[in-house]
């Protein structure tokens, strides 16, 4: 099986994996970058969110081979004011959804900055990042502990 080369958090990594291995499993089980979480393995929770070339994706539905040569950022490579904001606003409890929430929020903020609309956007292009916009745009990240208020506050603070 050909060796897979992945660029993660600015470093080159090699892994000997079959093509059916997801990016998530390569991270967690082959490279032991376990900060990225598996909550459902079916695209239905967002815990596995990572950034690829700055865009957020769910790594559980991503075959690792498909992402060779792309710039992958996981929570281990994130150094962002959101992280402290999450702690200060208590935007976490068990912490299992948290890396996904943070990666997702980083991707979301740059989507918004680039003018991408959401289902909550009435105008042609988004204006301010209102609480309703944050909640809609972050709906791909489920938090069973229900830390939603703190998460939204943390994002709001960093966005403004």
């Amino acid at each position: 099986m050909p060796e897979l080369r992945l660029r993660i958090n600015g470093e080159d990594h090699k892994a000997d994996v079959a093509p059916q291995v997801s990016l998530l499993d390569v991270l967690r089980e082959h490279l032991w970058l376990t900060g990225t979480k598996k909550g459902c393995d079916q695209g239905a929770c967002g815990a596995c969110t990572v950034l690829v070339d700055g865009r957020r994706i769910v790594s559980c539905l991503a075959l690792a081979v498909q992402y060779e040569g792309r710039e992958i950022t996981t929570i281990e490579g994130v150094d962002h004011p959101l992280q402290e904001a999450f702690v200060r606003h208590d935007g976490l409890q068990c912490g299992y959804c948290t890396p996904g929430q943070i990666c997702s929020a980083i991707g979301m903020l740059s989507e918004h900055a680039a003018g991408a609309p959401s289902a909550a956007t009435e105008a042609l292009a988004p204006e301010a990042l209102t609480p309703a916009e944050i909640r809609e745009r972050m709906s791909g990240n489920i938090c069973r502990c229900g830390a939603y208020n703190g998460i939204a506050e943390a994002i709001q603070e960093v966005a403004s």
Partner: peptide
């Protein structure tokens, strides 16, 4: 007071049960 393990959780350093090598 901020929760003590907050930093470990927002950086991905916290290791959950399936994550021990």
């Amino acid at each position: 007071v901020d929760r003590r393990d907050g930093h470990a959780k927002v950086t991905g350093a916290a290791r959950f049960s399936a994550e021990h090598h």
